[in-house]
Design a protein around this nucleic acid. Structure first.
Lengths: 142, 142
DNA sequence: TCAACAGTTTAGAATAAATATAATGTATTA
DNA sequence: TAATACATTATATTTATTCTAAACTGTTGA
């Protein structure tokens, strides 16, 4: 019952009741000293490794999606076989290393503001994401 | 045997032998007067509707992936349940309308060049894609 | 031209991510 | 604290994608 208030609030605001499993998910996601990228499977594995709480895949999916809807997490647009999520919800972009299946943050300061001149009637822009795919640079410029 | 030479070449350069099925795939993809976006299922359906050739999913997957590897098609980075491909391989970007599951091209001229100041040692940038998610703009600014 | 080979097609099976289901359990409220 | 509404879970389902192996076809060279 001594759940951290900040996580109870986060869950409530996301339309979820604070439960043992969900609090644990919050701890893993939001206690970290750095933001990080994860897949659902990885998140389940982290929880299993650092707590004696059993959390089902379904609960993790539901909770993560509720947080995304609320804006506490972001999904990273990528054509990978699994979905990747990000605890860093600030405006930033990504490198994706296809050879190592690895995501690397690009800070907002490292990319000029992306200014889209075209508009679509009746629609507004919700988000703008830059994905830069990187590969090994074997032949350096001779 | 009267297959168009341009498609025989395209297939050969992609490491594939020209076959009836693959030529048909080429015709659907590259004869169109406009570039377009598609999923594998849609492509199979188009072929079935406009030809009396039976093409299996596996053949379409293999051929599309060979073309992507060669650079004749592009995969669009998106977290949709299916993969979306693009016959427009020129440098351009996309709106993705999540409400209607619809992709819209943004011409290169409509976005300032994305200049990434950060580099990753040993890696080079292979591609840079901008995805702008759009949603209905109901409450116009009052 | 045609036999032999290497590569191709296909239906169906396998895989895997994501979602749905329904029985059991738990937080909330009055 | 009882009743209710919501959660959790294991399991089943769905769906995209990849794999497989048998039948088929384009290619090569004699």
């Amino acid at each position: 019952m001594a759940y951290p208030k900040k996580y109870i609030d986060k869950l409530r605001k996301s339309g979820l009741r604070p439960t043992k499993q969900r609090i644990k998910i919050c701890e893993v996601l939001f206690d970290a000293d750095q933001t990080f990228h994860f897949t659902i499977k990885e998140l389940v594995r982290i929880i299993e490794n650092q707590a004696n709480i059993k959390v089902s895949l379904a609960t993790v999916y539901n909770t993560v999606h509720a947080f995304i809807k609320k804006g506490y997490l972001k999904e990273i647009p990528l054509n990978a076989s699994q979905s990747y999520y990000d605890t860093n919800i600030s405006h930033h972009h990504h490198f994706f290393d296809e050879e190592e299946n690895r995501l690397i943050d690009i800070h907002q300061d490292d990319v000029d503001e992306v200014n889209i001149k075209r508009t679509i009637p009746g629609k507004k822009i919700k988000s703008v994401e830059v994905i830069a795919k990187i590969v090994s640079d074997n032949q350096s410029q001779k």
